[in-house]
Design a protein around this nucleic acid. Structure first.
Length: 240
DNA sequence: CCAGACGTTGTT
DNA sequence: GTCTGG
DNA sequence: CCAGACGTTGTT
DNA sequence: GTCTGG
């Protein structure tokens, strides 16, 4: 699945990469990289309206319009690609409210069959480019402070690279798919669902990382650096 | 008809 | 065990 | 995703 | 809001 990720690429670079409108300088200055993005946090997403792509903050964890409060968002951080058309909370967003969530990489926890321990891994593109994750967004008007826009990330079966680590992975969309995915006028859910397949096996690399990533309050660039998993089991981390 | 759920993951 | 918060 | 809380009353 | 279950 996808429950934690890195968002460290500056918005102006994302704007170029996704052919989206640039941010005002003042807003760009306030941006900070996030090496441990967790559910309920604000994440940058790309949406399109009237043919114009924009980069905007959405709260991660989709909150349906009928929700009494925001809490349900913590459990709606992912939407299964296989069933997205059938689920009440996701079917309308899938038809008309799609977005991309750009990430530098994401984290997955590999559970050891023998010990039950969880080893976190960092997964990222070998060429250093961002990954465009397929997302859906929704608006919640239940609060007193005006509408809150939220999002979720689609998941699919793992490719051969991820299978040893986890049984789900986020849906990654290639450049050629962005156009129809972001076009709100595209209502061919049959076609759209054909885009929701595991990424090519050679697209994503991975390595084990420090368990410091476990706590969402830790946010350092070094969280995504490789460690020796054998050293970790003895409590002797050679890198730190 | 009304009432109650609406989601994913992982674990068992 | 289960829910909430980050 | 993982970490951390999970409850009330009354007193300070 | 919309679907499922009773």
């Amino acid at each position: 699945m996808c429950g934690r990720f890195v968002a460290a690429t500056e918005p102006f670079r994302l704007a170029r990469y996704f052919d989206a409108e640039e941010w005002p300088v003042e807003q760009e200055k306030a941006w900070v990289p996030n090496y441990n993005t967790a559910p309920t946090q604000q994440v940058l997403a790309i949406r399109e309206s009237a043919g114009q792509r924009r980069i905007e903050y959405l709260r991660w964890g989709l909150v349906p319009a009928w929700a009494e409060d925001l809490r349900i968002g913590s459990r709606m951080i992912n939407a299964r690609a296989e069933t997205v058309t059938e689920k009440r909370s996701f079917s309308k967003p899938f038809k008309t409210q799609r977005c991309l969530v750009p990430v530098d990489g994401f984290y997955e926890w590999q559970v050891s069959q023998e010990t039950g321990r969880k080893q976190p891994h960092y997964l990222f593109r070998g060429d250093g480019e961002p990954l465009a994750l397929a997302g859906l967004w929704e608006v919640w008007n239940g609060g007193t402070e005006g509408p809150i826009e939220t999002c979720t990330i689609l998941t699919c079966a793992p490719n051969q690279t991820l299978a040893p680590i986890h049984d789900r992975m986020p849906v990654v969309l290639g450049r050629s798919a962005w156009g129809r995915w972001l076009d709100n006028g595209e209502h061919d859910t049959g076609y759209l669902q054909t885009l929701l397949v595991p990424a090519a096996n050679d697209l994503i690399l991975h390595h084990p990382i420090d368990t410091a990533v476990n706590s969402a309050s830790n946010n350092h660039a070094w969280l995504r650096e490789p460690v020796n998993p054998d050293a970790l089991t003895t409590g002797d981390n050679a890198l730190f």
